[in-house]
Design a protein around this nucleic acid. Structure first.
Length: 162
DNA sequence: GCCAACGTTGGC
DNA sequence: GCCAACGTTGGC
């Protein structure tokens, strides 16, 4: 990349159910890339397909578990490209509406950057007035991939140090 | 284009 | 396991 041409990093949040896939697997494969596949929601797809860039960072969030929490930071190493798991009838997220010629679903590749020194739980996040606007905390939010404001990102990193 | 029915998400 | 919120589907 030519010096100075780099666009500012954007921040994201990725949900995953630790029972299916979580930070344990990512740690085991440190410095290896993972496909963030299986996303079947249009809004989440659009973020991955249209907005994510290599070098962007994302929180890894554990959902649907005893202690929902942000547990680490991932780096996007490859921006949006067709999610090939949608093409395979044997895949759980197979979707016949998505074809090689006209892909419907997209994924990105990520790599674990680091695990948090401590998990920042959903419960804790909710106690901070600085985070009331956070998309994750919005009523009825079900997006599995969403943007995080830089201000919120920085605030949460400071929380981790407490 | 409306909207009821249905399935899924995800915290609790 | 419950249930609110939301997206999708399909009849009309």
């Amino acid at each position: 990349m030519i010096h100075g041409s780099r666009t500012p990093v954007r921040y994201w949040l990725f949900k995953s159910e630790p029972a299916a896939f979580g930070i344990a697997e990512l740690k085991r494969r440190k410095n290896h890339t993972e496909h963030w596949d299986g996303v079947r929601n249009f809004q989440a797809r659009n973020f991955m397909r249209d907005e994510m860039q290599a070098g962007d960072l994302g929180f890894l969030y554990h959902s649907s578990c005893a202690e929902p929490a942000i547990v680490g930071i991932m780096e996007i190493v490859r921006p949006g490209y067709p999610d090939f798991t949608a093409f395979d009838p044997l895949e759980p997220h197979y979707d016949p509406k998505s074809t090689l010629q006209r892909p419907l679903w997209y994924m990105v590749d990520v790599r674990l950057k680091r695990e948090f020194r401590r998990p920042i739980t959903l419960r804790e996040l909710k106690t901070h007035p600085a985070l009331v606007g956070m998309r994750l905390l919005a009523r009825g939010n079900r997006l599995s991939v969403m943007p995080v404001d830089r201000r919120e990102w920085d605030y949460i990193l400071r929380l981790e140090r407490r």
